Simulated assay, not measured.
Amino acid sequence: MGYRVVDCDEVETVEDRPCEMRRLSAAAGLEHVAINRFRAAPGEQVPLAYHYHEEQEEAFYVLSGTLFVETPAETYEVPAGDLFAVDPNSPQRAYNPADATEPVELLAVGAPAVSGDAVAYDPEDAAE
């Protein structure tokens, strides 16, 4: 059996990200699920780019604020306490709009914990 408590504020932030990101999986010793905590100020994007995952399912649980998620079909507003789920091969871009009055904080959970399955998506290319 194995158990761990992780002080998320003690986990280092990831450099070169458009918002504050802390990778919690490694700190918790988890290998099969990716868990990241994000804090995005108004005007900040959560992922590096509009993208989709080939294998990974993703879920964003909003801790505070409102998360906006742009998809090819519509933009979703996800308030605190709600969960936004994304199937593989489903393009999305999560962000906190510039006119927001507060930061958005969320946990992003992805499984399986694969590396390199994120594919950049350009909505303009898809429209052609």
Rank of each mutant, 00 (worst) to 15 (best):
I35Q: 00
I35G: 04
F38G: 03
F38M: 02
R39H: 12
A40K: 01
A40N: 00
A40R: 04
A41E: 15
G43H: 03
G43P: 09
E44K: 07
E44I: 10
Q45N: 14
V46Y: 00
P47V: 06
P47D: 08
L48Q: 11
A49P: 00
A49W: 14
A49D: 13
Y50C: 04
Y50A: 03
Y50R: 00
Y50G: 07
H51P: 04
H51K: 07
Y52P: 03
Y52V: 00
Y52M: 07
Y52C: 09
H53M: 06
E54H: 14
E54Q: 15
E55W: 03
E55D: 10
E55L: 13
Q56F: 02
E57G: 06
E57D: 13
E57M: 01
E58N: 12
E58K: 01
E58H: 13
A59F: 11
A59L: 12
F60R: 00
Y61N: 08
V62C: 08
V62K: 05
L63V: 15
L63F: 05
S64W: 01
S64N: 09
G65P: 06
T66A: 13
L67G: 01
F68S: 14
F68N: 12
F68P: 00
V69A: 08
V69I: 14
E70S: 15
E70W: 05
T71M: 11
T71F: 01
P72T: 06
P72H: 02
A73P: 00
E74P: 02
E74W: 01
E74C: 07
T75P: 03
T75Q: 13
T75E: 13
Y76D: 08
Y76R: 12
E77Y: 04
E77A: 15
E77G: 06
P79R: 01
P79V: 07
A80L: 04
G81V: 05
D82A: 15
D82Q: 14
D82F: 07
L83V: 13
L83C: 15
F84N: 09
V86A: 11
V86E: 07
D87Q: 14
P88E: 12
S90C: 05
P91V: 05
P91K: 08
Q92A: 12
R93M: 14
R93K: 15
R93H: 11
A94T: 10
Y95C: 05
Y95S: 01
N96K: 10
P97C: 10
P97N: 07
P97G: 12
P97F: 08
A98C: 04
A98Y: 09
D99F: 11
D99T: 14
A100L: 04
T101F: 03
T101R: 13
P103Q: 09
V104N: 07
E105M: 08
E105L: 10
E105Q: 12
E105D: 09
L106W: 14
L107W: 10
A108S: 13
V109K: 00
G110N: 06
G110M: 02
G110C: 09
A111G: 15
A111Q: 07
V114Q: 04
V114G: 04
S115L: 06
S115A: 14
S115M: 06
S115I: 13
G116R: 04
G116W: 09
G116Q: 07
G116Y: 13
A118I: 06
V119S: 04
A120L: 14
A120Q: 12
A120K: 11
A120R: 12
